[in-house]
Design a protein around this nucleic acid. Structure first.
Lengths: 232, 232
DNA sequence: TAGTGGTCTAGACCACTCT
DNA sequence: GAGTGGTCTAGACCACTAC
């Protein structure tokens, strides 16, 4: 193996992060220290870190340091289990923060739902945590005609639960899209990561039993935080 | 905006790649030339390129250069439409190369299908192209008992079509997983990209109407090549 | 204020592709 | 052989976090 040195470094680092005991709170030593230990420069060391980051083994929190990534959360976007439920079912601790609630038009949502671009929506933006790590920034746009008065509720639990309970809406048809992406400035900021961090975007357009548009949502996940599952 | 310079560069580059006329064959000018034009160093310029690569706007082919990425292919892994069919339906040109055909055990496939780790499979490895760009490296492991003699066929078309036609197998139950990843050395080599390039991994375990295991496959896509869709 | 990652410079040589 | 990206050096200063 006449490998690039940074690829050899990834092997050393892989060993380092294998034993959680050798790290405090899953935190890696500072870049400068690692670079010195492996007799290289920070730039080269950072290539190795970036490689492991791409593999989903480590991640960084803004300017705080590098951390070992926990196991991926399993997530099935075709089911309407609430976030809190499926996170707890995997013995992890969920938490939700509501960042904004407002009423206004949003052309992408309108297009996905087959409504005129000027149509107004209830817009809810949330940040969601697993074991105290912010892993998901999401925005939901609900058709106000389907759920009048929605904004008077609280949104730290399942939105679909609310719709079912108070407006007897059954979510019949779903059109889902998923793609890799780079997190936007705003999403990165909300999740406390560097802008441009790799993400996985999931969006859904949802209709009721009579094919009427109900809701459109966009989820932006840290790329190493989930494994999407679908069973047919 | 007191942005980092490399983020300003991405804006200039975005403009550059907006008009296909300004580029020959969708190819960007060499890094050294761009660095000079924007009065910066190659390292900084490469940060900007990496950012756009993460967004899926450009990609690189080994040591040949940077290219504007074409539109993403829409792909629904829950359907059993063949690759050739859905690529053509999107007015693109599909092509398949068979890289290897053999019989041997593969513990991950065995585990996914609920078989003993030593169970042997027909293994087929292929590389698939869209418009002459290699975008997918895939491996399939078929349970030999379900399709005896399979390896005497050709594999440049739909495997599922073969199974249906010659062995009357209906693919009833599918368990699908998707996650972002870094392409392995082998996958990167087969796709002609730098090892560690961002990818999207999709794997499926497939069972027949009587819940008997039929096939397991792993797909490794270039991350910017697809948008996964699911309709329920 | 100290410590961390984030950005940036100005080069160098290597490995591979294309012709 | 020329041209391209891939890797690497040895520094520097900036911006944000945590204390």
């Amino acid at each position: 193996m006449s490998d690039a040195y940074y690829l050899q470094l990834t092997e050393h680092l892989r060993e380092l992060i294998r034993d959680p005991e050798r790290l405090t709170d899953g935190r890696l030593p500072p870049e400068r220290l690692l670079a010195e230990r492996f007799r290289t420069t920070r730039m080269t060391l950072r290539q190795a870190l970036a490689q492991l980051e791409g593999e989903g083994r480590i991640h960084r929190s803004n300017r705080r340091g590098w951390f070992v990534s926990p196991e991926r959360l399993l997530y099935d976007p075709t089911r309407d289990a609430g976030f809190n439920d499926y996170v707890r079912a995997q013995e992890r601790v969920p938490r939700t923060e509501v960042l904004a609630v407002e009423t206004r038009p949003h052309p992408p949502a309108a297009q996905a739902l087959g409504l005129p671009a000027s149509h107004a929506f209830y817009h809810i933006r949330r940040r969601r945590f697993v074991d105290d790590r912010a892993v998901l920034a999401e925005s939901l746009w609900v058709v106000p005609e389907r759920a009048p008065g929605l904004l008077e509720h609280r949104f730290d639990h399942s939105l679909w639960g609310l719709l079912r309970k108070h407006w007897q809406i059954e979510l019949a048809h779903r059109s889902i899209r998923m793609m890799s992406e780079a997190l936007s400035r705003q999403d990165a900021k909300d999740l406390g990561v560097t802008p441009g961090t790799a993400g996985l975007g999931i969006n859904r357009a949802i209709f009721d039993g009579e094919r009427r548009p109900v809701e459109y949502d966009e989820e932006h996940w840290l790329h190493d935080a989930i494994c999407v599952t679908v069973d047919i």
